[in-house]
Design a protein around this nucleic acid. Structure first.
Lengths: 153, 153
DNA sequence: TGAAATGGTACTGGATCAGTCCTATATCAG
DNA sequence: CTGATATAGGACTGATCCAGTACCATTTCA
């Protein structure tokens, strides 16, 4: 189904929560779990990953917690996805060239790489700050002109 | 990793093979397996699905086999992916609205739907005919201008 | 009538995933 | 100094999903 893992899903929800409430200096795992209605152990686990990957800064101790490491406009969601579940790669040959035993006969690898770039561009152009705020219909892909999306030479 | 299943991967390889050799009227599962170096039982299984989903026309009997139901230019790969593994939906709430118990508090659903549209547009603009032929570097996304990809209003 | 093809479905071993739990370490308050 | 509260980093588990196989029925043609 071309779907992200729950971990990534929750991770983006959490980061969006950070972006949407930048008044507080730090958010603890417990508070975040309560505010997002996500299970605490999962929230805790995911925050550790996000800190290790450089999206959050952690502060230990009684008054500790996490805070955003960068301004939301500087965090493309493609980067979050890549950090949480490895490179975005629709096929095995895109992520690990040479491992697919059909590669010598299969002529599709270069094509998949291009397709992958398109998907990555799409995800790379959306940042955390695009995910907050009450406005729906915020993103207008290509000015609604799908024929401009990919140009064949 | 945002990856398609092997079934879908193989399915597209097989369809591309059909598109690349339209001289023969029908291709049998056995011949296709030999030519693509894919395991016969899998090829057989996948061809059945592709026929059921309307991409191939099947012909039973001794001289039977499969043939393309449409011209390759008319088969967007997004459609193949959707047919083989369900709707392209990065999150659960996009595919099945109402099932996620966080939906009432989560403000991200409309955003994910837009993001999903962008990905679908990218995949929808590439057809089977783009996958054949010896030319690499065939696709040029957005004329190489990523900033034109998504416009925020 | 038999060979060769598709149609449909059931089954299985393995991998992956969501989620939990435990222990160590750091920080602050009293 | 000590206890409470936080993160850090693992190990662990039950459930689900996936790739691949196997089996039998049906159709077609020589």
């Amino acid at each position: 189904m071309i779907r992200m893992s729950k971990e990534t899903d929750y991770g983006i929800i959490l980061l969006a929560h950070f972006a949407g409430d930048q008044e507080r200096l730090t958010h603890s795992a417990r508070a975040l779990a309560a505010e997002t209605y996500l299970p605490l152990p999962m929230v805790s686990k995911i925050l550790k990953i996000l800190a290790r990957e450089g999206f959050l800064v952690s502060h230990r101790g009684v008054k500790g917690g996490y805070s955003l490491a960068r301004r939301p406009e500087r965090v493309p969601i493609a980067e979050i996805i890549t950090a949480m579940e490895g490179p975005v790669a629709m096929t095995e040959c895109v992520e690990a060239p040479g491992e697919c035993r059909h590669e010598p006969v299969c002529q599709l690898r270069s094509k998949w790489q291009k397709i992958n770039e398109v998907v990555l561009l799409a995800l790379g152009s959306i940042t955390l700050s695009d995910l907050i705020g009450p406005l729906p219909d915020q993103l207008a892909p290509f000015g609604g002109k799908p024929e401009n999306l990919v140009r064949l030479q």
